[in-house]
Structure formats: C-alpha cells, structure tokens
C-alpha cells in the first residue's frame, strides 16, 4: 500500500499563530535597522559621502521603531499586560530578549540623534557605534523568534537570523534610496538629485541582494533534500500556494531584476529606473517576510 492511498477525513486546526501582523512587525524593524546603519555610515564610520542621509536616516529609524511594536500590541491578546514582559522574565525566550532591545535601541537612537542635531561629533560617533550592535540585535532577534519554532521547517533554520539581517539591510538601503530622491527633489532649495549618494547606495544594495539571494538559494536547496517536513515546505514555495509570491514577487521581481539594475554601471545612472527598482525591492522584502511567517505556518503540524 502506498502513502497515496491515505486520505485525511477529519482534523482540527486551532488557527493561525503569528500571521500578517507579525510579518509587518518584522518588516518595520528590518527597515529601521537598515536605515540606522545607513545613518551611521558618515557619522559613525566617516564615509562623508553619505552625510546628507545621516539625520533623515536616524529620524526614520526611530519613527519606524516606535511604529513597529504597535503591530505587536495589535497582535497581542491581552494588550494591557505588556508590562509583564519586563517583570516576569524568561531568559530563554527570544521575546524576552526583544522586549529589552525594543526599549534600549530607540533610546540609543534618540540620544544619537540628539547629539547629531546638536553638532557634537564625538558623542554622535560613540552612540552611532553603540547603536550598530543594538540595531543588529533588534532585528537579529526576530530571526531567533522564528528559528525557535522547531516544528516549522521554514522557520527552524540556523541561517534565519543572518537571512533576516541581510534582508533588513536590503530593504533599508532601498528605502533610503527612495528617501534620498524624495528629499533632494522636494525638500531642498536647488532640487538637484544627489546621484553620487544614489550610486553609492545602489552598489551596496546590489551586493547585499547578491548575498541575500545566495542565502535564499542555500536555504531552499538544503531544505529540498532534507527531512519530509522540509521537503513539503520547499514544495510549498516552489510549486505550491506560495510559488507565485516566492518565485516571482519575492525573488525575480524583488531581488534578481533590481540586482541587475543596481550592479549595472549604466542603469545605475538612471534615477527613475533606480527608484522603480528600489520600490520593487521594498515590495520584495515585504513579500519575503510574509512568505516566511505565513508560509512557515501554512502547513499544519499534525
């Protein structure tokens, strides 16, 4: 008798656990971490070319990080009990790590921004550099949240925190390219778009996309020959209900095509094309968050 002659007659599914709200939360923390790192390029590491993005980068990073936990709050079943997170501590839970990171990181952002706007170079640099590990952790921990879901193959992967960090950089840089153009075009006196910054960001984004695609391919290839659950989840992405979102929206339109635009010296000079590619990248990374979070729990456990 083959496996094919078994058929499910009755089973119970107790409902979605994380869903779209958590996917949006991951997306926003990723954007925040990415734009923070862009902001520190000049103020922390001395790449003067990116100085115009320092202030706007940190303002956006802080705002996004204030907005992101609102989605956690919306997702929580008992919103008035959020203080429990800071009183009853389970140190083995990534959410406990995150509740402190979500406090420390915005505070660091605000202090860093304060000294930047005050013009205190030394302290700006110090708080920029202390913010980088915080920015990495505040997004990296979200990768651990998923990786601890050990029964769900799309989540339970040790490259998940790294993949989340790289995709955070990807979406953050893409957003900063759009922000840079909008700022130059509408909020400066001469209204001249700074193409030097744009092509610098485009090169960075191009190589981050290469790394992101590499990690994604690693994940899919290994899962496709791994245990039964992993094979099922690969099939979901490559030929199942998530194939369109995963192959076309996330990877082809959201990563591969923009990668060619960003890495081509000729295309990199065309501002409208860069803008379009950046928008596609931002859509692609949102789709990635959705595919991982919602796709990861799409296949029932029993």
């Amino acid at each position: 008798m083959s496996m094919d002659s078994t058929q499910l007659l009755y089973d119970i599914h107790n409902g979605e656990t994380f869903g779209t709200l958590i996917a949006i939360y991951f997306y926003l923390t990723g954007l925040s971490a990415g734009s923070f790192i862009i902001s520190t390029l000049s103020y922390g590491f001395g790449f003067v070319r990116f100085k115009p993005l320092g202030k706007i980068g940190i303002v956006i990073a802080t705002l996004l990080l204030v907005a992101a936990p609102m989605f956690l709050l919306a997702h929580s079943g008992q919103r008035l009990r959020v203080w429990h997170l800071f009183v009853y501590l389970r140190l083995s839970s990534p959410i406990t790590w995150g509740s402190f990171l979500l406090i420390l990181y915005p505070i660091n952002c605000i202090i860093y921004a304060f000294f930047m706007f005050k013009g205190n170079k030394r302290l700006t640099r110090i708080f920029g550099l202390t913010g980088i590990p915080l920015a990495l952790m505040v997004h990296g921990y979200t990768g651990f949240i998923l990786a601890f879901g050990k029964a769900r193959p799309l989540w339970n992967s040790s490259i998940m925190p790294l993949l989340f960090l790289v995709s955070a950089m990807v979406s953050g840089i893409a957003m900063m390219m759009i922000v840079s153009v909008v700022r130059d075009r509408f909020f400066t006196k001469d209204r001249v778009i700074n193409t030097d910054i744009l092509s610098g960001l485009a090169t960075m984004l191009g190589w981050c996309l290469v790394f992101d695609l590499f990690l994604t391919v690693c994940e899919v290839v290994v899962h496709s020959i791994s245990h039964l659950g992993a094979q099922e989840s690969t099939a979901l992405l490559l030929s199942g209900s998530f194939a369109g979102l995963f192959l076309v929206v996330e990877n082809l339109v959201g990563k591969v095509l923009p990668m060619f635009v960003m890495l081509s010296p000729r295309a990199r000079r065309m501002v409208p094309l860069l803008l379009l590619a950046s928008v596609l990248v931002m859509i692609g990374i949102y789709t990635m968050r959705y595919n991982v979070v919602v796709g990861g729990e799409y296949i029932p456990l029993l």
């Binding site: 107790n14 656990t17 079943g77 456990l301």
Partner: peptide, 24 residues
C-alpha cells in the same frame, strides 16, 4: 500572566494550543 503573544502556539510541534477568542 499570559499576554496572548501566541509564541507558545507557534512553537508547539503538536498544534494543541489555541488563543481563547474572548479572553485573549
């Protein structure tokens, strides 16, 4: 104590937990 974050539901390999729709 439960804040309804659903992490336990997400991590349980057996899917035996649920969120009470009224109690959260």
């Amino acid at each position: 104590k439960c804040i309804g974050c659903r992490y336990c539901m997400a991590s349980c390999p057996y899917g035996v937990r649920y969120l009470h729709p009224d109690l959260g």
